[in-house]
Amino acid sequence: MSGLIKSSLARKYVMALSGLFLVIFLVLHVTINLASVISPDFFNEASHFMGYNPIVQFAMQPILIIGVIVHFVMGFVLEIQNRNARGVGYIKYQGGANASWVSRNMIISGLVVLAFLGLHFYDFWVHEMAYKYVEANPEDPTRYYAETVEKFAPFWRTVIYVVSFVLLSLHLWHGFASSFQSMGVNNKYTPGIKKFAKAFAVVVPLAFAFIAIYHHLNPITH
């Protein structure tokens, strides 16, 4: 097993598995977010459950944060190693002739998504932690919908979110199906996996973007 930890293939497995884990998380996230458009009451209930359930808070949330950290730290490690592996660069290099821009620039789409996560954590997670643990406010299962809609009142924040979702889409466009290849899955199901992954890469970020724009255009009027 020691060889597995140090090897280039192990790094591929780590990227693939942490990426797939984050893909599963996206499904959960977008499902709850869609509730904010369809049913504010259900959104409040679901958000309250996620915010106060001890298993979610003290088991799933740390695992998720670790998953994000592992994915981006390994991404940086791979990027540095890969740049070093070339040494002297080409004077003329037609990378676009044999591979897509998206596949060659995962570090760019990844960095944008990472920067977005910083803002997103500040917007929601830091606020939530402060509300619960610093200010020690009492539980209020009805506050989540209004707080979420208010977040999207500024135009600039909505634009940043939507642009980030476009980059998330590009990241998933290559990364989702790529993780199967890294785990050794390349068989008769691969064309189907690729189609599903690309559909996922469009539909999920589109849903996130729709939610952000919807709340920006439909503020709560008191």
Partner: peptide, 28 residues
């Protein structure tokens, strides 16, 4: 000191013998 595979597929396109990425999946 070779780099890591990021599944861009450039190798498969440029290989004069058309060696497929399926081989990399098999190795994985």
């Amino acid at each position: 000191g070779f780099g890591n595979c990021t599944n861009t597929g450039a190798c498969e396109v440029e290989c004069p013998k058309g060696i497929s990425l399926e081989n990399i999946a098999r190795m994985n």
